[in-house]
Amino acid sequence: MQNTSHAVMAQRVEPATSLDDFPTPPWATRALIEHAIGADSVRDKTCLEPACGRGHMARALAEYFKDVGSADVHRYGFGHVRDFLTYPYEAKSHDWVITNPPFRLAEDFVDRAMTVARSGVAILARTVFLESVGRYTAIFRDRPPSVFAQFSERVPMLKGRVDRKGSTATGYAWFVWHLDKTPAHPRLTWIPPCRRVLERDADYA
């Protein structure tokens, strides 16, 4: 019999060689801009989405940013084929770096993004990314996020596709670093229920 406890269902373990292909529903990207960063603050900014997959996040970002560059280590048919961790992006070449990185590489993505971005970095990750001594030492102790924006409703992440009827037992949050500001303390906020408002029929075409 399947164990359906939330403690088990909330875990997702991918093989070390996995591409971690779990596309972000576009409404969850719009929620970042509308409720954590602010649409007016990015209208004249550039953005890089370095784990773009099939473009679900990049297309949503393009609704807000002046220009969005897209790339992924795998050829999905959208954006450039580039390994974000090894491609020679110039330092501070983009205003923002925003992405949903492979979970096992998220620390490396944050570290790399800090050099590529001028204004800010935002990554979508499971809420448990807050945990672990390793991440505390590598990231959070000396470079805590400016904003930790927890989704109040669940963001369904399904392997290889977005699905309007999808569901999940896993909690997600946006981790946001404002590089051009030095906040005294990280700000905890909640992204209010907004899926119905920010979802579009075209997101699932």
Rank of each mutant, 00 (worst) to 15 (best):
T29W: 01
A149S: 14
E107S: 13
S152N: 09
A117E: 09
F140N: 04
V176C: 04
D111M: 11
A28E: 04
P25A: 11
Y76D: 02
D72V: 07
Y89P: 00
E107M: 03
L61D: 04
E199G: 03
A60G: 07
H178Y: 14
E14G: 00
D201I: 01
E107Q: 09
Y204K: 08
A202G: 10
C52G: 00
D44H: 09
A138S: 15
A91C: 02
S18R: 05
T127R: 04
E34I: 08
V68C: 00
V155T: 12
Y87W: 15
R195G: 11
E153A: 12
R143Q: 11
P156E: 05
A91R: 09
R164S: 14
D95N: 10
L61P: 08
A36D: 07
H80Y: 05
V176P: 01
H6A: 13
T182S: 13
Y204L: 09
P186Y: 12
F84D: 02
A10I: 06
F22H: 15
A51P: 02
L85N: 07
R200Q: 15
A125D: 04
H6N: 12
R200P: 03
R143W: 11
D20W: 10
P186A: 08
S93Q: 06
L105G: 00
T189A: 09
R200W: 05
F22D: 05
D142L: 08
D111K: 15
